[in-house]
Amino acid sequence: MHPILKLLVQRIALGLLLLLAASVLIFVGTTVLPGDVAQNILGQGATPQALENLRQQLGMNDPAHVRYFNWLGGVLQGDLGTALTNGQDIATSMGQRLGNTLFLAFWAAVVSVPLAIGLGLIAVRYRNRWPDKVISTITLATVSVPEFLLGYIAIFILSVQFRALPSLAMINESMSLGEQLYAISLPVLVLVLTVLGHMMRMTRAAILNVMQSAYIETAELKGLAPFTIIYRHAFPNAIAPVVNVVMLNLAYLVVGVVVVEVVFVYPGMGQYLVDHVAKRDVPVVQACGLVFAAVYIGMNIIADVVSILANPRLRHPK
């Protein structure tokens, strides 16, 4: 087997192992910690008999590892359990919401990734001059304000003062793509602002690192045109670090989505999770936690795979 293939298989296997460990962690976090789920659901006034019945129903009298494997077995077959609060099948309720969340995250990524890389390039090109300073000041300001506040500031200015964009991001299947995009324009804007700062700063650092390499000087001393230098010498070496930056920030986007969905009352995973945390609906929380962790770990695996593939030392071993 080619060594690089071995490395890739190893990396992916490690990611799956990590996901498995994360599922244990989520399960442990919701069962071993003090706090009685049955009590939480029924409230302080519940009779001991009612509590016992509920515990029985939830399988809470089984040993923890039995419950874990039952749960995991279900998850692997696509059965995420049923919600305590309304008895609905979690996988069914989640399906549409997951799609909505990915739709939102996708459009935020489509806008923010080129924008961040573009701004990063501009900042490098005009390093320590005014465009660089303006960009870094604005991005510092955006990362100093939490997402939900950026959301309300955007609503206050763009929906209330100028009445330009909708403050609630309601979407459904009967809407055309254009209508849907219009509806999610504000949450996308806020998500873009939250990841843009980090992504742009890290891109700037990654490109700067490549531009300061000795081989870029070699290219300059060959008398090559600036465009040729960037295209032929900087770009191939900047792919891996930039992809890494992008993936890390898209993973961060997954978290930002939770809060932004609540602000804009968007029918996605984040809203679903937060609602059920408040209702202490443990099976839903476990399922959502697992899905978020899977997406997050998946992004990190992709980042690693790209940097392995982009490394000439690994692609062409001695």
Partner: peptide
């Protein structure tokens, strides 16, 4: 491997 906000929730 799990985002902090998700773990906290």
């Amino acid at each position: 491997s799990i985002p902090s906000l998700i773990s906290a929730l």
